[in-house]
């Protein structure tokens, strides 16, 4: 099976090489489409009002903003990848008491005002499916 002396010179590119290279590139393309998400992708905050998605915002961008619930205006703050209710027109203030939420799988809601916050993405960061409280 070893090369004989007269065929000693090997060509770098033959058609089987090209076929293999093309296969590799195609496989890579499929893998990228199916698997790859850019590393370090910022987690996202989804805001639902009365069970309807209202808006989503990246947790990488610090900001405060207001959301209109069924009761009134809730103030939300995003800082350093975390989010919290600054204020809410509810009586029990459970949402404000909860404080910061930063991990995907954490839930934060103001029931009376029908506002729910859902943190999504980058489960790899903490490897936790849900927070028990």
């Amino acid at each position: 099976m070893v090369l004989s002396r007269k065929r000693w010179f090997v060509r770098f590119l033959k058609w089987p090489d090209l076929v293999m290279a093309a296969t590799a590139v195609m496989a890579l393309g499929v893998l990228y489409v199916s698997l790859w998400q850019p590393a370090g992708q910022a987690a996202e905050l989804q805001v639902l009002v009365d069970n309807e998605p209202l808006l989503s915002a990246p947790l990488s961008h610090n900001q405060t903003f207001s959301v209109e619930g069924t009761l009134g205006t809730s103030e939300l703050e995003i800082r350093d990848g975390k989010v919290r209710f600054v204020s809410s027109p509810c009586r029990n203030q459970v949402c404000v008491h909860h404080g910061w939420a930063s991990h995907s799988g954490e839930l934060l809601a103001c029931l009376p005002n029908r506002i729910a916050l859902v943190l999504e993405g980058e489960a790899a960061v903490n490897d936790i499916d849900a927070v028990n409280f």
Partner: peptide, 24 residues
């Protein structure tokens, strides 16, 4: 790949083909 395609046939891959197989 060596057994199936060999080195010196028309259908044998060259160094690039073998390198790709090995690397993947």
């Amino acid at each position: 790949v060596y057994r199936a395609l060999g080195l010196q046939h028309a259908w044998s891959p060259g160094p690039l083909g073998y390198a790709l197989v090995a690397a993947w």
